[in-house]
Amino acid sequence: MDYIWQGVRDSLRIITGLDREFLSAVLVSLKVAFLSTALATLAGVPFGMWIAEKRSRGARVIMTILNTLMSLPTVVVGLMVYSFLSRRGPLGELGLLYTPAAMVIGQFILAFPIVAGLSASAVVGLDKRIRATAFSLGADTAQSFRMFLREARYGIMAAIMAGFGRVFAEVGVSMMLGGNIRGYTRNITTAIALETSKGEFAFGIALGLVLLTVALVVNILFSLFREWSR
């Protein structure tokens, strides 16, 4: 037990001392996760709403696929993107492997099915009369889109949050595509993996605490947004 307490004490010193390596890992995590979630939101929310509106069989198949992809293992995404981005792969010319951009691509693929799938569920769950009302009032596509967006905003926000949670906490994609390069692609989770393997628990615990704190802050912002938009 003793070494765990020692680890917690040391971790607090690392956090309050604003250790440079520590800050860098936190920043990389935040930057990459925010960017990939933002991209997944831009693509996933409209896609999810569109698919929710289609009541065809093809749409149901796509929904099933999206729901399946929500549990896509991170290392499988890592492997797929790796084989595309490697110099030997079709996109090798871009030289993206072992850069934060590669991590963003991998995390986007992780977040997209979650954001799209849960957004679709949020829209499907809306009262059917909303749609009828919109059309009877002569709303065009853009107007009804905005209306659905407003009506389903809590569900969609939850979808975005879930997507963010997934990519912020994942380690497989970041490790395989980022390469855990210090000060560049090392984020909170890959740093924890490395420090634990070295037996340096304090640094790992410090990062774990930050991971939780950031998740807490994001959730607080979310509930503030709910209050504010009510």
Binding site: K31, L35, A38, T99, A101
Partner: peptide, 10 residues
């Protein structure tokens, strides 16, 4: 969001 990618340049 546009500013983030710039800080990723190495």
């Amino acid at each position: 969001l546009l500013a983030i990618p710039m800080t990723l340049w190495a």
